[in-house]
Write a protein that binds this DNA or RNA. Structure first.
Lengths: 232, 232
DNA sequence: GACGTTTGGTAAGGTATCGAACCAAACAGA
DNA sequence: TCTGTTTGGTTCGATACCTTACCAAACGTC
């Protein structure tokens, strides 16, 4: 049975068999917190569906999204990097399911299985590129462009064209006001790139959306495909 | 002879001895390009002094700084992560010197020396946190706050209180106009935190600068000290 | 000491986004 | 069918920052 998770798929079948006995199936609702700031991480999750958000906290329990992870990767990256915690919060943004493995078992595999380790390290490199382009985008792009980028990244990690999110939520992700999201969504909808209904955004013209996002989108995705394999 | 590089210092003396025979001393002028986008990385540099900037490119050879590295870390992180290149540009922002090691030798040590590998992986985690807070800062903080943060990060990695940079350069780093930097510097100088002369910024009241920078500064630095050791 | 070059200072008008607030539509439960 | 709650739409004035441009001071060089 093939995995939907692209990172697991990229492993040799021998390496997949090393991990398989450790895996437990899980299903997670939207909003479930996978990793809390500065608390030990006990498990590592490989999502088969759904989306998780990595949030950097800013003072008064406000935060902003600095990373996105779904079937392309894993949740619990610090355990690859010989750390046991992170100052970030990670939670399910779109409900999903997948396989998880105990943290200590995972650490042992990282120590002993060089091939698996290297594949996951390449994912760290790809993910890290994603974060740097978020930093770039936050500094120099308009809300519209950042929204376009975000929708594309989200779309890359979903099996269909529907992204079930409210304006309020998107505002939190992008670190802007809710009305700014409303206006930006109208703009993208006016251009025919997407269709937005209550709590749901449907991607209609992916190619045009990519063009619109410009320099914000593409580089991290190319890096992923170079290092791991096909993303979509 | 003790290293000034904090990452090398954090290694056991046995591990330091493993690296030492591979090291070549180097000195680099301001502006020297260490890593070019999408070109194979041939060496890894451990700075003893000076500062390097990691730049994410945005279309028409414009870029913005997404990371800073000096005596706290190394240049050539992709080689830790089983990658041989990166889409970023890395260059010397403040002239400096240090030790470098051949890329293939470095890769071999990564494979064979688990203790060294783990230390460097923890640096990846710390550096990664720095980048996420750059993303946060770019999204929600004012130019003044971002400038304060940048000066602090730069100061952390220098032996004295002098940061030799022009407004023009800082504007490039922060992704803002040059006049915005001038105004922000005046503001910080008016508050007595710094003293700016032609091409040089002197940090005067570090504690107040930290207070001013607020949520933008502190988390990545704490993460570094937790994972590696003292930064300053 | 005269020159060009680099660096810093400043201004006028424009735009993106913010903060706060209010209202309307859609939906869920009784 | 009524009611409360969630979500989306819109407005007002404020503000941080931009674009463009020009000028002044400091410095290096001949």
């Amino acid at each position: 049975m093939a995995y939907n998770n692209r990172l697991l798929r990229a492993l040799s079948s021998a390496d997949q068999e090393i991990l398989r006995p450790h895996f437990k199936w899980f299903e997670l609702e939207r909003g479930t917190v996978l990793v809390s700031p500065d608390e030990p991480i006990k498990r590592v999750w490989f999502l088969e569906s759904g989306l998780s958000s990595i949030i950097a906290m800013s003072g008064n329990d406000q935060g902003i999204e600095v990373g996105l992870s779904g079937r392309d990767g894993l949740v619990g990256m610090p355990l690859i990097l010989d750390a046991d915690r992170t100052p970030h919060r990670i939670f399910m943004q779109v409900a999903g399911a997948g396989y998880s493995i105990d943290g200590d078992d995972f650490r042992q595999i990282m120590d002993e299985q060089a091939d698996i380790r290297k594949m996951l390290l390449r994912y760290v490199q790809a993910y890290s590129t994603q974060t740097t382009y978020t930093a770039l985008s936050n500094a120099v792009h308009t809300v519209e462009e950042r929204l376009a980028r975000w929708l594309l990244m989200s779309h890359d990690r979903q099996d269909d064209d529907e992204i079930p999110l409210t304006h309020d939520f998107l505002a939190l992700m992008l670190g802007v006001r809710r009305p700014s999201v409303t206006i930006a969504l109208h703009s993208l909808e006016g251009l025919g790139f997407i269709k937005a209904t209550r709590g749901l955004i449907v991607v209609r013209k992916r190619e045009l959306l990519e063009e619109f996002a410009g320099a914000g989108y593409g580089v991290p995705e190319a890096e992923y495909e170079r290092l791991i394999g096909p993303l979509r």
